[in-house]
Simulated scan of single mutants.
Amino acid sequence: MDHCSSLGKTALLIAMAEENETEDYVSSAREKGFEVVTGKVGSMDVQKVIAAVETAAKRASLIDNNYRSQHALYHAILDALQGLGRGPLQLGNVLRTVGLRFAVVKGPRTLEDLSDLWIAVSMYGMIGAPIKGHEHEVCGLGINHL
């Protein structure tokens, strides 16, 4: 699979891959030098979505304890959530829930400049009323410079 040619595209493809294809996309991304972590989160609480992504990135050592990397990740998450919510994301307070797969990818923005590090957060899944069958697909992508 030679689909992983840029940071954002790589993050989106990994989050949107079918369950049985995810590891192929992750392996391809890692071969190109990207650092990757994936996960799932479902909640009516935006803070829980943010916490799940931050925790996964920290556990995988994609970010460290310095303020700059944490801040870059936080803003990439917020940008991805803006895409999901068509603006500022509101969930529980307007009776909405999400079930998402996410990918956090760290590396160069393009493979031509390996020294320029960025972080991308992509999310793909369902959003809707907390009633089975009352949801639809959404995706979001946020990219921030490290």
Rank of each mutant, 00 (worst) to 15 (best):
D2F: 10
H3W: 06
S5F: 13
S5G: 08
G8C: 05
A11C: 08
I14W: 11
E19Y: 12
E19G: 02
E21A: 13
E23T: 13
V26R: 08
S27E: 01
A29L: 07
T38C: 06
K40V: 07
G42A: 09
G42Q: 02
S43V: 11
M44T: 15
M44S: 15
D45Y: 09
D45V: 11
Q47N: 09
V49A: 14
V49G: 13
V49D: 12
A51N: 07
E54M: 12
A57F: 10
A57W: 04
A57C: 03
S61Q: 15
L62Y: 03
I63D: 13
I63Y: 13
I63R: 12
I63E: 10
D64P: 03
N66K: 02
N66C: 01
S69P: 00
Y74G: 05
H75T: 04
I77W: 00
L78H: 06
D79R: 11
G87F: 13
Q90P: 02
G92N: 04
N93Y: 11
N93M: 11
V94Q: 12
V94D: 09
L95D: 12
A103I: 10
A103Q: 11
V104R: 04
V104Y: 01
V105Y: 06
P108N: 02
P108C: 02
W118M: 02
I119R: 02
A120V: 00
A120G: 00
M123G: 04
G125P: 04
G125E: 09
M126D: 11
M126W: 03
I127Q: 15
A129I: 04
P130K: 07
I131Y: 14
G133Y: 09
H134N: 08
H136I: 09
E137W: 12
G140S: 09
L141V: 14
L141G: 10
L141E: 12
L141W: 04
I143V: 15
